[in-house]
Amino acid sequence: MNRPPEPTLPLSDRGLAYGDGLFETVLVRDGTPLLWSEHLARLLKGCRVLDLPPPRTEALASALAGAGPGLGVLKLVYTRGSGGRGYAPPASASPRLEAVWSSFAPDQQRWAAGVRVRRCRLRLARQPVLAGIKHLARLENVLARAEWRDPAIAEGLLEDDRGQLVEATAMNVFFLARGAEQVSTPSLDQCGVAGTLRAALLEQGAVVEAPLLADELSSCEAVWLGNSVQGVWPVARLDDSEGQPQHGWELNDVHRAFQRRAHRLLGYAGAD
């Protein structure tokens, strides 16, 4: 199957110029979007925050219809469009919705063996107005991801200026605190992206929100990273911000049980 040409945004588009827009990255299996209700809910919340008219139902349906066979990822980009003067938005927006589909295969080796992660030096700014939504202005994530080049490091963990664990550069964090009976995930009411897999697990009662200082990660019984495309990666090794080993975990039934529960939501197998 030939990949269709990628859309081109004009230089006047506010999403390109200012990050004035939103995006969703949707796992699609044989034309069926996974966790679609969660993706749509986050997109609509982002529209309310940015005061954007929501995308038309028929436009979203057309974008989904462009997904190819098999397993793939559909990236939706929704901008305010062009217009306005400087930062001032136009009185009446004419949003643009663009979609790009590509085939995808998850990294099952990371499911099975777990991953090595590091703490990032960059600290996330707290901005509760934008917290949770997936807006286009993601320079913090870009700078954090640029902190390492070692391919053995799968992800970087981000904290805020108070040392509270928030997320990874492109995934949410889940942890089982020592002595706890329930898996937790940091609250994202000040900063961070509220992932759709995280939302589904919260809705199921599989996880609860709880704070955790990044310095306390080593005391946790288990740590995972997850999103709606890659699935769940157990964390096997934690490095500090200089790449020096800080803690390690042996993967066990606790890791696998949570992974299986999350993967059922995505149609992925477990990692037994």
Rank of each mutant, 00 (worst) to 15 (best):
C47P: 10
D51N: 15
P10D: 02
A262N: 01
Q109Y: 04
G81D: 09
P90G: 11
W233K: 03
L27N: 00
E203R: 01
Q190F: 04
G83S: 08
L265K: 00
L158T: 00
E147V: 08
K134Y: 11
P234F: 05
S92L: 06
L22V: 10
P33L: 07
R119H: 06
W36C: 13
P128S: 14
L50Q: 05
P234L: 07
F104W: 12
F258M: 04
V142L: 15
D239M: 10
L9F: 12
P53E: 14
G31C: 04
P54Y: 01
W36I: 12
G70Y: 04
V100T: 12
R56V: 13
P4S: 01
L44Q: 10
A125I: 03
G163I: 00
Q127L: 13
Q164R: 09
V232H: 03
F174Y: 14
G179P: 13
Q204A: 15
L27T: 02
A125S: 15
W36K: 02
E203V: 04
Q109G: 15
S37Q: 13
L130I: 10
A61C: 09
R138L: 15
A61D: 15
L266V: 05
D30H: 06
A206S: 09
Y18T: 07
T185G: 10
V26Q: 07
A206V: 08
H255F: 10
R145N: 08
K45P: 08
I133V: 09
Q259M: 13
H263W: 03
R264A: 12
Q246P: 00
E38Q: 15
G31N: 03
P33D: 11
G68L: 06
G163A: 02
N172E: 13
L251G: 00
W249G: 04
R96K: 08
W36R: 08
L197W: 05
H263M: 08
R56P: 13
G270A: 12
S82T: 12
E24N: 09
L74D: 07
D272P: 15
G226A: 14
A67V: 02
T79G: 11
R261N: 08
R145I: 11
W111Y: 07
L136P: 12
A99Y: 07
L238Y: 02
G15S: 11
D30T: 03
L74T: 09
L74W: 05
P245F: 07
P53L: 14
A236T: 00
R96D: 08
S241Y: 03
R80V: 05
L34D: 06
G70F: 03
A154D: 04
A170Q: 12
E221I: 03
A67S: 13
A168M: 02
E140H: 11
R48K: 11
A271P: 06
A180F: 12
R14E: 05
L43D: 07
A222C: 15
K45C: 11
P186D: 09
Q246K: 00
S228G: 14
G84D: 07
L266H: 01
R116Y: 08
E203H: 11
E38A: 15
S228W: 02
A262D: 01
L43P: 06
R119D: 03
S187G: 15
H263F: 05
R264G: 11
E6L: 11
V100K: 01
V49S: 03
R96L: 14
R110M: 04
A61N: 12
S103A: 13
G66F: 08
L143P: 12
S218F: 05
L124N: 02
A112L: 05
V173N: 01
D239V: 10
L265C: 02
A59I: 09
L122F: 07
A144H: 06
